[in-house]
Design a protein around this nucleic acid. Structure first.
Lengths: 294, 294
DNA sequence: TCGATTGTGTCAAATTATTTTCAGGCGGTT
DNA sequence: AACCGCCTGAAAATAATTTGACACAATCGA
């Protein structure tokens, strides 16, 4: 990793930051983020101004730049300028495309644009009080947490389960085979929580499951699309995710973001315990020799 | 005439040069040309370097800048930088103010903010030519497409598989049980494609799998994190996703977005066939009475 | 809890950039 | 031909940036 990172003309500063990111200290990363957030403008001023804008000290910037392989700030500044010129942002009035070198009309950009709009809608519509309440319920480790998904959202449920499992005990992933659901309901108790994913092509079975669970005194948290699954009738907390994209299927990026936000919040809610579990997990991985130490 | 040349924020330096051009001396014009030829890069260095590049003296530049209405070189430099920043608007740049009603400091907003930054970084680092090439390889229906993931990314692999299956034939999801992988490799043929997800806590088995697949003449597409999995050594196409969040685990929102963009692109690549498959799928759902018509 | 290590900001010296001053040079006019 | 106005770059004075040394703070491991 630390192999010589002499900045060749063909290597962008962005790439240098990426390849050296692991060797950067927290405040160096802070500066790196500030630079990448406003690339390359943030690096085209004096080191003094650049440091001030990132809220770090000047030497921190200088040290980071050395780590990147530059001999000083001026060479770094010069490298950024070279990139800028190479992008041909200069002579012609060509539109600046700093976020991605792909052209405006490239499907990658069009797609991203649409998804961004979905994220916007999704988060503009979340009620934070409801979010907090749902998180609190799901963080309660004395009761059981069940996770279930539909056809497409099954993998989201798996993802949720994998992380919940690391954060808290008493978590169960209900398979997508609806025939097995009654078995799970059998064990549900008052105060338990059921997290349901239901994105369109709503699953009728999920509604019946939610109904039965509610009757058992279980709190239901529903993550659905903008049109709202019928499961909402039995849900205590409902969250709508905007999923529409110009395609035959739906985008679940917003769903994923909401889910991760919930996991993060739950982790925060009972941190000491979660931390202990993570440490234990790491230890178990080591013992079982499953992953390379990176 | 000179009195009204106070550089307002909305007036570009370019315009200032044009309106004041007649009042410029020969060598001042020489510098003006050099600046316009390489706009705005030529003005984003020190006055010394800028003057040298235009083959004029430093005072000449200083005088010209005064004529344009600036009080010195630094304000001029700053104005150019502002213009540059104002132009840099990418697909992910819209995040500006769509926070939910929750307060700035609510964890929901803080989390979202971080993820947005990851999305930005991810897409700024994608090479569109590479993306196109990888998509083309994966869209080739005459060869087989294999999908495999690691511990956490297993669910992403499942998600990918579910969608690929709808879009094209000959798709196989390799389970995360590495003991079964040799069986799959047995069937791999030259020209087939293997899509690998490997986010940190890299899986050593995945690397060996990629190595063997490569030896069989299979093209490997890798989706990894910003630090790059060792699988990259055997991959024909590598895509880095920014995954770091202030937490014990990694965010896969960016990974999901990239994956969906790929699915969308593949669908686009051979639309008629994909469309026929979707219609057929809908029909089958109806016949099997699996989902409520919504 | 205590060292050892690592990270981070303050400070000051050295360097470099910016501004100002000034003198030479070039055309055009008397 | 000599004078005058203006343009231009050299050089000095001033202001700023850059960088290395140092000390304090935070973190980690024993």
């Amino acid at each position: 990793m630390e192999s010589r990172n002499v900045p060749k003309s063909s290597v962008t500063v962005r790439e240098l930051i990426r390849t050296n990111y692991t060797s950067l200290t927290p405040s160096e990363r802070k500066f790196a983020q500030a630079l990448l957030d406003n690339y390359p403008s943030a690096g085209l001023t004096s080191i003094t101004a650049a440091a001030r804008n990132a809220n770090v000290s000047v030497p921190t910037v200088a040290r980071m730049i050395n780590k990147l392989g530059f001999t000083g700030y001026p060479p770094f500044h010069h490298a950024l300028l070279q990139e800028l010129e190479a992008k041909a942002l200069g002579p012609t009035e060509r539109r600046a495309k700093w976020a991605s070198e792909a052209p405006e009309t490239h499907q990658l950009n069009r797609f991203t644009e649409t998804v961004m709009r979905n994220l916007e809608q999704t988060f503009a519509n979340i009620d934070s009080a409801q979010f907090d309440a749902a998180v609190k319920a799901m963080a309660e480790t004395s009761s059981h947490l069940y996770v279930v998904g539909g056809r497409i959202t099954q993998s989201l449920a798996t993802y949720a389960f994998t992380h919940f499992q690391a954060v808290r005990e008493h978590t169960t992933h209900m398979t997508s085979v609806s025939a097995t659901w009654p078995h799970y309901v059998l064990d549900m108790q008052k105060g338990d929580v059921l997290l349901v994913f239901d994105i369109r092509r709503y699953d009728a079975g999920l509604m019946r499951l939610a109904e039965q669970a509610t009757r058992e005194g279980v709190q239901v948290v529903l993550i659905t699309d903008q049109w709202t699954s019928p499961v909402a009738d039995w849900a205590d907390y409902t969250f709508n995710c905007w999923v529409e994209i110009p395609s035959a299927w739906d985008s679940n990026v917003a769903t994923m973001l909401l889910l991760e936000a919930m996991i993060a919040a739950i982790q925060e809610e009972n941190w000491p315990r979660a931390r202990a579990r993570y440490d234990r997990l790491e230890d178990l991985f080591d013992r079982m020799n499953l992953f390379r130490r990176s």
